[in-house]
Each structure stands twice: as C-alpha cells, then as structure tokens.
Amino acid sequence: MTSSHRATIGDVARRAGVSKATVSFAYSGKRPVSEGTRQRIFESAESLGWTASESARALASSRTATIGLVIARRPEIISADPFFPRFIAGCEAVLAEAGMGLLLSVVTTEEDETAAYTRYAAGRVDGVILLDIKHGDRRPALMRALGLPAVMLAPTRPEPLLEDDGMTLPAVIAENATAIHELVGLLVEAGHHRIAHVSGPPHYVHATERRAAFTAAMTEHELDPSLVIEGDFTAASGQARTAELLDQVPRPTAIVYANDVMAVAGLSLARSRGLRIPEDLSLTGFDDSDLSGHLSPGLTSVSTRPDEVGATVVRTLLEALGGASGPVVRVEGPTVVLRGSIGPPPPPV
C-alpha cells in the first residue's frame, strides 16, 4: 500500500478473496471461519499493514451484532429529506466493517417510539442511536430505565440531556450555527436587507439552533431579525410559508430555509408567481441535497456531510460498547456550497 492510502478491511477482504464480514468474523470469533480462510485473512492483513480496530475487537463481547435506530417522523418526510439516507449509509459502512447490522424502525407516535425502544432493549440490539434531539427529550431517561446503551447526535452540547440522574450519554456534536451566519453574511454582502427565515419545528434542537443563528446574524448586521416563519421541513410547508412571505408588503428579497426540501418548494412557488431567481428573489437551503445542484439556477445550500457524521456516530457507539468512549465527540463543521440562487436584490419599485 502507498503511504497516501491507508489499508481498510475492504482491501484485506479483496486480497484474501472473502467478504468484509468474513474478515470481521475471523477477528471477532462471532461466526465460525475455516482455519485455512482465517490464515489467509491474517496473512493478507499483515502484508497490507492492516490491524483490526479497537471497536471491532470489542465486538467479540456483543450479544446481537446489531445497532438500533428509531426515526420518529412521517415516512414522506424521511423519503424526501436527503439527510436520512446519507446518514444511514455512513452508519452501514462502519457496521459492515465490524460485521454488524442496523435495525431501523420508523414510527409516527411517541407511544410507538417507546414500544420500539422497549423491543430493542429485549435483547434485539446492543445499543441505539438517538437522532432528532428535542428540547426536554425524554429518551435519555428512557434509555436509563431500559438499560440500553445509546449515543446521541446533537448540534450543540445538550447539557440537560447528557446527564440524567447520574447517567451520562455519549454525544456527537454536529453544529449548524456557523453556516447560517455565513449564509446571512453572503446575502448581506449581495445587498439584501429584508431577509426572511423559514424555520423547522421548534421542538427540535437543531431547528431552534438554526433559527437562533439566523436571529443573531441579522442582529450583528443591524437588520430586522423578526421575519421568521415556522415550517415543518416538508415541501408543502415550504410552499405555504413562501406564499405567506411573498404576500407581505414589502416582501422579502431573500429567504433562508432550514432545509433543501422547503427551499426547492419555495423556489417552485416563486417561479409560478413570475419571480426570477435570483434577480427578483434570492434563496438558500440547508443539507445540500443532490437535487440542489441540478436546479436552474443551482440552490445555494449547506453540506453537513451526513455520511461522515453517521460513520462517526457508529464509531462512538461501538467505542462506548467497548468501554472506551469520552462523553463528547465533535465532527467537522458544515460547509456552505455557493450556487446561483444568490444575487443582488431587485431595485426598489
């Protein structure tokens, strides 16, 4: 291997002529592997300079080789939101290397969510990932009651959630605020003063963080920060909230959306009213979906690298299961992807 390419379990598997799962089983002992195959794997690993990770070695004590994920959102929201499939792909990449799997449950009510975690705790998974952290989230206490190891993904260090009656949950922090500040700065630099924000539901910590960042950025630029209207991350709400904003007199010359789904719907609604993007209205999204780069003009958005985040969350959970994790892991901040949906505001009528 060259110095620029660090050997992976996939490289070992290819050289040994086996699957990545078989490599993992050879090291963890979770499944029988013939002596000949095991020796071939070990020789391939040695020649490539690859060693099994601490997380993979810790899996030998795992009961199910499965990690659980419960997503409490309506299926239509999940299917349209680019974050979830990319996040899950990142999770699966690390789990595959460890010879593990992901058990996913999609629920729509708090009762069903509790039932899913209860089933998981009955020996179905070794630990769980907590997404969509809410203000006053009840799940850390539930994990303690169920005795279920967990790691949470949050945009900021959620102090009340990390410690619940003596229980500390590991957390992966993926902040959003800096990107919102940058988006507002780009719009102000382009000449905009009347800028609106279509936020996400206020019970989500990441939605309120983006809203707070918008308010702070507008205040720093000595602009009115009050033009905020609440959406729910769906295309329908993006369209409806955009219509409300465009009906205002004077209307905003720029809109910062809390996700790409609402932004794309808003762009479509604006065009249906005869507005040009960005000549008459500038727009920005968040999450950098594949569609954003193929619109005309392309939608300025924010890449949160959900696959990398998912991989980090799983590694953190595996380390926690092996007793080797710290309380907080931070991932690289989001990146603004500048495209053609930002331009100077139209001249006053």
Rank of each mutant, 00 (worst) to 15 (best):
G238L: 04
E175F: 10
S105P: 04
H203P: 02
M143V: 05
S268L: 13
E222V: 10
A243Y: 04
V329S: 04
P344T: 12
V336N: 09
Y120L: 14
E113H: 01
L153G: 09
S105Q: 12
T284C: 14
A235F: 01
F286I: 03
A145S: 15
M262T: 02
T304E: 10
V23N: 01
G231M: 05
A258P: 08
L246T: 11
G49C: 08
H203A: 11
P344C: 06
D11P: 04
F214Q: 09
A235E: 05
S289V: 06
L246R: 09
M100P: 06
L269V: 10
G49R: 10
R6Y: 05
S325N: 02
L146I: 08
Y27S: 08
P155Q: 02
P32Q: 03
S272R: 14
G127S: 12
R315D: 14
L187Y: 08
P160D: 11
A270C: 06
A89E: 11
P82L: 03
D307M: 13
E319H: 09
K20M: 15
E308K: 13
R305H: 15
Y257N: 01
C91F: 09
T335W: 07
P334T: 02
V349D: 12
H193D: 13
I195W: 00
R74L: 00
M167D: 13
I41F: 02
G10I: 07
I133C: 15
A254E: 00
P334E: 03
R57Y: 10
S272F: 07
E43D: 15
P149Q: 05
L142K: 06
V228E: 12
H197D: 10
I180S: 06
G147S: 04
L130W: 02
L161D: 04
D112T: 00
M1T: 14
Y204L: 15
P250V: 08
A89P: 06
V184Y: 00
A258D: 14
E110R: 13
I277F: 12
P345E: 08
R86P: 03
A154G: 05
T208K: 12
S296C: 11
V313N: 03
G123I: 01
D132A: 13
A190I: 07
V228G: 07
E319R: 12
K134R: 15
T51W: 05
V23A: 01
A60W: 06
A190W: 10
A320I: 08
V198P: 00
T108L: 01
A96H: 12
G36K: 11
A216F: 08
A60G: 11
R157Y: 11
V172W: 05
T37P: 12
G323P: 05
I195L: 01
G101W: 07
T66I: 12
R14P: 07
A58L: 07
V18F: 05
D290M: 11
L318H: 02
L267R: 11
T242S: 03
R15N: 07
A26P: 01
T64E: 00
A311L: 09
D164T: 15
E244Q: 13
E54M: 02
A236P: 04
S47V: 03
A16Y: 00
L131V: 15
E220H: 14
A80K: 01
A258M: 08
A324L: 14
V128Y: 09
S24A: 15
